[in-house]
Design a protein around this nucleic acid. Structure first.
Lengths: 95, 95
DNA sequence: GTCTGGTGTCAGCTCCTGCTGATGTGACAG
DNA sequence: CTGTCACATCAGCAGGAGCTGACACCAGAC
């Protein structure tokens, strides 16, 4: 969850959501250094957000949709709960 | 978005999603210091995630559901895009 | 085999972020 | 009016996260 906090990682994730890319493409798209991207991709890999697929000298990164879907579900649940609370005006009494 | 990365802030948000609380309740629930909570609540307030409502000496915090809903929507959209990409195996060619 | 290019890893530094303690302000009780 | 409580703000410090440069490794090209 907190792995998506970094703006560069979020950009990587949104790029990978559209197509599977290798590191060279990510360097072109984001403008960041390759080493920097490799570090962030390692974080995403260890967090189980992306999968790697070697292809000759290149390494492709693919986003795991179920992870993003679970995050989206938990947020949707939170939003539904917040909406219900706002409508019912549930409020704990002042001590 | 990045304001939800902190685990304490996420806990605050999940607590506020269930009921409107004032700072004293949050201190009891989270076990954190009042100053610490006040800092995080200020971050949430400036990010537009929560609303404040003074009540005598107390201050109530209410979660704004539309913010959480928009985050959930963007993640759901991302998840849908990732799922479509995974199924269609869209992949940019090696250079 | 050698050389080149694409990637991952490691060490170091910097800077941001969060936590804490002290202080200030407003509201209520006495 | 004074004391106390709830809450916010400010300054200072420590820890971690991110960026960078150097190096190692592997796959193809020749």
């Amino acid at each position: 969850m907190r792995v998506l906090a970094d703006p560069l990682r979020l950009k990587i994730v949104s790029l990978l959501a559209r197509e599977t890319l290798c590191t060279t493409h990510l360097v072109e798209e984001t403008g960041a250094r390759q080493t920097n991207l490799s570090n962030h991709l390692r974080v995403l890999r260890e967090a189980g957000v992306v999968e790697t697929e070697p292809c000759g000298r290149f390494t492709y990164y693919r986003l795991k949709p179920e992870v993003i879907a679970s995050v989206a579900d938990s947020f949707a649940e939170l939003a539904a709960s917040a909406r219900a609370t706002a409508e019912s005006a549930a409020k704990r009494a002042c001590p």
